[in-house]
Amino acid sequence: MYKNENKERKMKKYMIIATIAIIIFSIGTLVVGRNPTRIENILKDTVANLEYYILKAPVEYVSNIVNEYVALKDAYEENKILKRQLDGLQKEIAYNETLQSDLNEIKALLDMQYLPTDYNIKYTTVIGRVPSYWNQELTIDLGRASGIEEGMAVINSQGMIGSVTYVGELTSTVSLLTRENAVSQLPVSIISDDKEYYGLLDSYDTERNAYRVILLSDSDGIVNGLNVVTSGLGGTGKSPRGILVGTTLEVSKSESSVSTVVYVQPTVDFNALTYLAVVQRVNE
């Protein structure tokens, strides 16, 4: 009897210790961040791939066919608008060709192999995401076997959405720019007519629904609506120069009043991410 009570008391003690340890470990991993082990990643990747190719992909395929059929109804009207826009396109193509030719000449003169704006892209599909309100990560169907490396920028047709934070053999994890606590700061530049301002995109503000960019230069001349693009200054493996991130929304002082913060409205609709592309600088 006494032995049983003692055993139960001991069991309770162990359970309390285990509970406290798990809570402390959970908070710790949230603050510091914990990289999953190799076995965890293999299990996660395997399940994600199986689920996607057996269940999600066939449904997505059927859904796309239905969407395309529905979109066909609008094709006539869209075609009329596009024909009107085609008139201006020839002028743009000619202008672009002239610029490209000038650029090639300058590269040859300066003996340059590549520019910071040069990049290749690899198209990819979202195959999974963590089912949580707090999730700011996606799993894509390209991994080490496709030449993907950590730190590469990921874009969609509207601009940059995030960067690769983990690379598996067949899949990769993309950390979105809408994270409240960014994994790393993204070097960006704000393009004005006569000046370029440099800064670091460090987080996403959920109250303003805008990125928070800490300015590294003065803020004179920054007005609302200026384009914010990647500066290409992050170093090897980081995003190339010139990928659209958003447009300026507001300029204010930081909480400590030491630095200037520019809030940037994202150009990407993060609620409709299916087809993406991983960006690779040509010099890598």
């Binding site: 689920e51 999600k56 995401r129 089912p131 309100y133 809408t178 629904n209 994202p266 993060f270 609620n271």
Partner: peptide
């Protein structure tokens, strides 16, 4: 697996601007 399948097709609110559920 069912949850993951449903959540894959449910709208996601990464920008925290509207309603979302899991």
């Amino acid at each position: 697996v069912f949850d993951s399948f449903v959540n894959h097709f449910l709208p996601t609110d990464f920008m925290k601007t509207g309603i979302s559920f899991v």
